[in-house]
Structures are given as structure tokens and as C-alpha cells.
């Protein structure tokens, strides 16, 4: 079984792992093949100077500093555009994570990257059932449960949203962003009210 995540709710603890739900296993897979006279062609890259033809897996990627020296990920500090250091979140595998309840309507601030099925060991099925019932109770009240998702230490943690369905819990992993409101820059009603002004005709007829 995969690595376990410890989730604390009320006074209980549920230890679970994630099984990825793959779209290709449900609906099948689609890919594009390039052919010349029936022969399947290979994808490759060519440098802009045309000097090097680079077949698959011939390019490495690396973090480097200003002197093009290798830099380890552990040495990197993440900052915002103002230069302020961003806090790092510990991996969810290294600690007990807490749940957070939110309104169902706020789910639409969320965008899913991956979906998983919540799985527990056979002897811990009762804890999963308790958690499912809790999720379902909240869902019927118009609420959902979420928690932080950080596979490894990161300044950009994601969220896990727990959705109860058919006695299983589906976990959507993704990101929340608040709504962006838009408004009219011009008050059309105010413009219309100007049309009633008495001297409007004179103003419109005035040649400048």
C-alpha cells in the first residue's frame, strides 16, 4: 500500500492512502501518431542553430544559479515578486493533518488537478466509514470538508476536498482561488438622466 496520511477529525484519526483515478482507465486513452509510408516517426527536438538533433530523453533539466552552477532544490528559497520569502509547508506525510469545513458554494473556487480514491487497510474500515458518514452529514447540510495537500515540503500547498459518493470518498486535489468581481466602469443610468437636461440640444448643436 502507498504512503499513509494521518487525518484528524473530531477526536478520531483516520489513516489512509490515495489511489489515483485515471481518466484513461475509465474512458480509454488517446494519442496522436505521426507516420510516413506506414512507418511510425519519433518525436525529437532540434536546437535553434540546427546543430543538434535531440531524440527522446536526451535533454536534462537542472536548477542553476547566475554562474550556471548546479543548485540543489534544498538550497532554493521562494520569494514573492516583492522579494519577501514565502513560507514552506511541511509534507502531509510527516504530520497529522486537520480538517476544515467550508460552504458547498465555495467549491466552485476550486480547480481539480488530480482525483483519488480514499483507501484504508482492511482492519481500519470502521474509521473510513465514520469519516464517510461525517462527510455525508456535512454534504447534506450544504458543506464540504477540505484539508491541505503537500506531497513534499513546498511553498505552494494544494488542497484536498473530500466528496462522499456511493459509500466511497473521492478526493479532489487542486487549488482554491477566490472569485474575481467585475463592475461597470460607466454608470449608464447617469448618462441617460443627462438626456433630460433642458439645454442639451444647445450643447449638442454648439460647434467647437
Amino acid at each position: 500500500m502507498a504512503r499513509k496520511i494521518k487525518l484528524k477529525f473530531d477526536e478520531s484519526l483516520v489513516e489512509f492512502s490515495l489511489r489515483k483515478i485515471s481518466k484513461s482507465k475509465i474512458y480509454g486513452e488517446r494519442r496522436i501518431e505521426y507516420r510516413l509510408n506506414g512507418e511510425v516517426l519519433e518525436n525529437a527536438k532540434i536546437t535553434t542553430d540546427g546543430m543538434h538533433i535531440l531524440p527522446k530523453s536526451s535533454i536534462a533539466q537542472q536548477y542553476v544559479n547566475e554562474r550556471n552552477e548546479y543548485t540543489s532544490i534544498s538550497e532554493i528559497i521562494y520569494t514573492d515578486p516583492d522579494g519577501k520569502e514565502l513560507p514552506q509547508y511541511e509534507s502531509h506525510f510527516n504530520k497529522e493533518i486537520m480538517i476544515e469545513v467550508f460552504e458547498l458554494s465555495n467549491f466552485f473556487n476550486f480547480q481539480t488537478d488530480d482525483i483519488y480514491l480514499m483507501e484504508v487497510e482492511d482492519d481500519l474500515q470502521s474509521s473510513l466509514r465514520n469519516f464517510y458518514e461525517k462527510c455525508l452529514k456535512y454534504f447534506n447540510e450544504g458543506k464540504l470538508i477540505k484539508t491541505t495537500y503537500a506531497f513534499r515540503k513546498t511553498p505552494f500547498p494544494k488542497n484536498m476536498v473530500f466528496i462522499p459518493k456511493d459509500n466511497k470518498i473521492i478526493i479532489c486535489v487542486g487549488d482554491f482561488r477566490g472569485p474575481v468581481f467585475n463592475e461597470s466602469k460607466i454608470n449608464i443610468d447617469e448618462l441617460i438622466s443627462q438626456l433630460d437636461e433642458e439645454n442639451l440640444d444647445e450643447e449638442l448643436l454648439e460647434m467647437w
Binding site: 525529437a44 543538434h52 538533433i53 535531440l54 531524440p55 530523453s57 536526451s58 535533454i59 536534462a60 533539466q61 537542472q62 536548477y63 542553476v64 544559479n65 547566475e66 554562474r67 550556471n68 543548485t71 538550497e75 532554493i76 528559497i77 521562494y78 520569494t79 514573492d80 515578486p81 522579494g83 514565502l86 511553498p155 505552494f156
Partner: peptide, 21 residues
């Protein structure tokens, strides 16, 4: 966001050739 070292060096993600065709 930006990536930096403790010394303030800006970090970039660069691609390098391992081998060619």
C-alpha cells in the same frame, strides 16, 4: 514567484544536452 539562493543569487531552471542523435 522567484527562486533565489540564501546569497541572493537568482535560480533558473535550465535545459542541458545529455547526448544528441
Amino acid at each position: 514567484h522567484y527562486k533565489k539562493t540564501k546569497d541572493g543569487d537568482i535560480i533558473k531552471f535550465r535545459r542541458m544536452i545529455k547526448f544528441d542523435k
